[in-house]
Design a protein around this nucleic acid. Structure first.
Lengths: 341, 341
DNA sequence: TGGAACGTTGCAAACGTTTGCGAAAGTCGA
DNA sequence: TCGACTTTCGCAAACGTTTGCAACGTTCCA
């Protein structure tokens, strides 16, 4: 029997049907566990399938049912050409998404996209390969996302949901509030000339900057934060931060980093120069990744609940796949007070 | 025209063929850029396709061609039930794999697997959904991997390639040599009672332990390293390490961590207790993730070239998909001397 | 005893593409 | 003018499932 299983490899449902002496249709129904087949023959067929370790061809099944069981997860790297997928925030988010998606029986197809062609999202959405798509981050591609979202429902993004006129469903945290928290914390630490380390092309980051600015304004500080472009790409970040600090290090007395990774790098550069954190220079991060807790000193940061965010994204997506409506969700950030500010 | 494009949505190749006044076969060939069609009609059809933003159904195409253009990337979490995908090493590796794979026109389907059923790998391999599969890590599932690899060629794993009788293709670094380097470094720093923080069920980690042990033996130290189970799950790692240090902290004078993440956590715990690194307690990590460089103090670690590793994996896989043979590759690790040891 | 009702199964038509094969039309040289 | 050859295209058969519908054999009730 074992030999038999090896010799005449049963590849198709028809093969198995011949072996079982029934029609392919019956095998299909039996394997799907439908109630339309006799329980006895169903068991017999399932046993036979197991014995030959037969698994129906997914491609054919999906073509026929028009349902793929695949969710596309795409990371648009619009303005961050040098950034790659290894960015810890994306990765952490991806991890939670993968957990949740596989739990619900979906597969996850990952695309890392540098949007050079303008139809990058159409290409994905219209490939007919997935039941829905999740965007980790909006990058500077809000226009494209809006255009597609207008006609393609099962699409949800991570990021800002309060953009003027926004139609696409997004889940994220209140970045303005988060930025304000960071700013307030720095001000409470006595900082008045605050630098913001981050690039403003993604709406998320821009809002964080605006939050910091509003906190400063509210405290009666009459100048805005000093904004310094800093990419999330880990390979050049050290040089970038070093250059920034070389240039304006003397003029500032507090740093709001657009992400924990940037904060961590900043800590490193400051340590090299003997600048004490937080006494000489308070630093606050954003995200609250695990590494914020392991850093020395521990990073004071604005927490985004990534696990919950992933959950909300998946839930919204499933509702949209089912044809229901699902609104955007904006979660409140919370300041995690640790040692760096 | 714009209206037209919206109104009569062209979904299939047949639709487009009708519009262009040719047969579906010709459209298919034109879209594929085959030379069997007149250049003029080809351009005309392509223009028409673009105008209606038509994209052929992938599912059907794949069913017909029996080529999916999808590579499965699976992370087996055999003994690490609590570990999730957000582990930085996996994620960094995944990032490079995604870069390389998309570069070559392949899609990437991600599965995070907790191997409860024994046929988890068969289920993936026989789904008929991918042209090949990449395993990030062997976990404690070497038997399963071996069984499948015996009949399924396009499979390559990250991990040890020198296991007794191993048939499956693996790329990784020489973990024994790497462990030895770590051990030698600690010994050079004066350590003699060395703790190894890591779990031995994955062959990779076990070999690192053996490397440390062999370095100690070579130095005339007559006892083995003190092995302390430490999971890679970031959420309980701090507690684990704390517990370990509570128990044996007084007996040891050097720490070899099985990964950089463990090393980082250890640094954090040691800092809490006022134990100076490296003076009181040298610590060496493994992997050389970006975070090793940002840590304070910078982590001395054994470097695995993840980028090259990902490249080797993909190359080997492509060769195997093409039917050629591809041997395992074992890359040399290198000790990166920094501040923690 | 007839037929309605029920539970199981088989038949065959999709799903949307690719591709071998042959037909038609055009080109060229003899 | 004819045949050989080339280029371009249409026809139709796959790829392996799923599923509506019809057919079959029972059972059961009138």
């Amino acid at each position: 029997m074992e030999q038999n299983a090896q010799m005449s490899r049963v590849r198709t449902i028809a093969d198995l049907a011949r072996l079982a002496g029934v029609s392919p249709g019956t095998v299909s129904r039996a394997l799907a566990g439908k109630s339309l087949v006799n329980a006895e023959t169903r068991d017999r067929i399932q046993a036979l399938a197991a014995e030959h370790s037969f698994r129906p061809n997914q491609m054919a099944s999906r073509l026929r049912t028009q349902r793929t069981g695949v969710i596309g997860v795409v990371v648009p790297l619009g303005h961050e050409r040098r950034q790659h997928l290894s960015d810890p925030f994306f990765m952490t988010m991806l991890g939670f998404l993968a957990d949740r998606l596989t739990e619900d029986g979906y597969d996850l197809m990952l695309s890392r996209i540098i949007p050079d062609a303008t139809d990058w999202l159409e290409r994905i959405v219209d490939s007919g390969m997935m039941d829905g798509v999740l965007l980790i981050g909006q990058s500077d591609q809000v226009d494209t996302i809006e255009r597609v979202a207008r006609r393609y429902r099962p699409l949800v993004a991570w990021g800002s949901s309060d953009l003027p006129g926004q139609v696409h469903c997004a889940v994220g945290t209140d970045n303005i509030a988060g930025g304000r928290m960071a700013g307030e914390r720095l001000i409470a630490r006595g900082a008045r000339r605050i630098a913001f380390l981050g690039e403003l092309r993604a709406p998320e980051i821009r809002q964080r900057y605006e939050g910091v600015a509003s906190a400063m304004a509210a405290a009666g500080i009459d100048h805005p934060p000093i904004q310094l472009d800093t990419h999330l790409a880990s390979d050049i970040m050290v040089q970038e931060v070093t250059a920034h600090l070389d240039r304006v290090g003397g003029e500032i007395d507090g740093i709001a980093a657009a992400s924990d990774v940037i904060a961590l790098t900043t800590l490193r550069v400051l340590a090299d120069r003997g600048i004490r954190v937080p006494d000489d220079m308070p630093v606050v991060g954003y995200d609250d990744l695990p590494l914020a807790l392991s850093a020395v000193p521990r990073i004071t940061t604005v927490r985004q609940d990534i696990a919950r965010g992933a959950d909300e994204m998946v839930s919204a997506l499933f509702r949209r796949i089912a044809g229901e409506d699902a609104p955007s969700v904006m979660m409140p950030p919370v300041l995690v007070e640790r040692d760096s500010a």
